[in-house]
Each structure stands twice: as C-alpha cells, then as structure tokens.
C-alpha cells in the first residue's frame, strides 16, 4: 500500500489524501485511517474530518506540529483494512406521494422513466454515508443508481424545509435545516438525522449503510403530511 500525501492546512491541520478520484477502495482507506487515528490517541490531535478521498487531521499547535503529526500518522501504516466489518444498516422510511415530491415528475421526464420506475430505483439503492457537510447533520449518501442520477438545477430554490429527501448526481440527502438548494426533491422522510439535544445527536455514522423503505402519506407525522 502506498503512503498517502500529507499537506499542511493553516497552523493547525494536515490533509491526508489517498487519491483524487472517488472510489470504493479510496473510501475504505479513508474510513479505516479515520478509525485508526482516533484509537491511536496521537498527542495533540483534537479532531479528524473524513471526506471522500481524504481526511483532515486537526491538531493543537501549542502541543504539536504538522511534522510530528505526519510522523505519528505514517507510523500507523500499513493499515489493517477489515475484510468483513460489521455494517450498521439504517432503514429510512420515505413517502413519495406526488403532492409532497415536487421534482419526481421532472426526474422521471429527464431520465425517460415512469415515476414508479424512479421510486423503484431509489428504493433499490444501497447507499453509504460518505460524509457530512454544508450544514449541521447534512449527511451525503453516496451510491444512487445511474438510472436516476440528475444534475443540480441551474439555480437554487430558497427555503426548502427539513425532512426533504433530495437527489443530485450519485448522491442523496435528507434536509436537516431550512436551506436553499438546487437538488431535486423526490420525497419526504420522518427521520431526523439530528435527533435530540444530547451531546451526540447524529443518527448516522460515516460509513453506515442506508436503505430506503416506502411509507404511506397517512403514516407521516401530521406536520409532514401537509402540502
């Protein structure tokens, strides 16, 4: 296994990069290194931020330096990539009622599919929590089938509420805050990724598996049933 590249980020970070093209293999390396660094308790390391092909290590510059962090991480190689690691699977209910899914028809039209085929493709996907970003609790779920991959809209729609299931390119996400977005809204989910006010309220860990299940509009919480 080749060593990743190490790049200094400001006075408190090192970006560790395995490659520049997203792939399952690189992603496994990122997740494994993330876990390995966390359990290694490296002096001065305060936080790690995994992304698609790289991982940012944040350190306390009063305690350590870029060079010392790089040496400590290099010493963790070669990584032991678990062959059959235990997967946490979340079954996430989604309501695809046409009234609540404003972009379903457009996605079907663009992809030359029926609405039912779009829904079936979404339900067939096994998605992976590849990273969080943009806003608190915004989990990017990777692995959408090519048949329903659509580009972002040319301009963002403002004020999209929480609980919306949206897609763009190979990714899917469920909104956690009111936000502007150019993604296509294809359903609603009662699942809240930010669960409560505890110290660890996030439902998904990076690397978790997500499978969607169809839910009837009547089973949504009342506030999500309304158009």
């Amino acid at each position: 296994m080749n060593l990743p590249s190490f790049k200094p980020v400001a006075d408190y970070g090192v970006l560790i990069e395995f490659g520049t093209r997203e792939s399952d293999d690189l992603y496994k390396l990122v997740v494994t290194l993330d876990k390995t660094i966390t359990s290694a308790n490296i002096l001065g390391v305060v936080e790690t931020v995994p992304a698609l092909v790289n991982l940012l290590v944040i350190f306390d510059p009063l305690v350590t330096t870029h060079t010392l962090v790089q040496s400590a991480v290099t010493a963790l190689f070669p990584l032991k990539i678990p062959k059959n690691s235990k997967q946490t699977i979340h079954r996430v209910p989604v309501c695809y009622d046409m009234e609540l899914s404003p972009d379903l028809i457009e996605v079907a039209k663009v992809k030359g599919l029926s609405v039912d085929a779009v829904i079936a493709a979404h339900l067939s996907a096994t998605l992976r929590v590849s990273m969080y970003g943009f806003a608190p609790g915004f989990a990017y779920l990777s692995g959408l089938p090519e048949a329903i991959q659509v580009p972002r809209k040319p301009s963002a729609i403002r004020g999209v509420p929480t609980g919306r299931v949206m897609i763009a390119g190979p990714q899917c996400l469920i909104t956690t805050v009111v936000m502007p977005t150019g993604w296509s809204i294809i359903g609603r989910s009662p699942v809240s990724i930010i669960q409560d006010d505890s110290d660890d309220p996030f439902l998904f860990r990076i690397g978790d598996t997500i499978i969607f299940e169809r839910m009837h509009r009547n089973n949504l919480p009342i506030e999500l049933q309304a158009k």
Binding site: V9, A10, G13, T20, A51, L55
Partner: peptide, 11 residues
C-alpha cells in the same frame, strides 16, 4: 471538478 473535501475557517 474535485471530490468534496474538508473546509476549515480560513480556507
């Protein structure tokens, strides 16, 4: 286009 990656204050 590069894959999305971590951003910090000051990026």
């Amino acid at each position: 286009s590069i894959p999305s990656e971590p951003i910090v204050r000051g990026s």
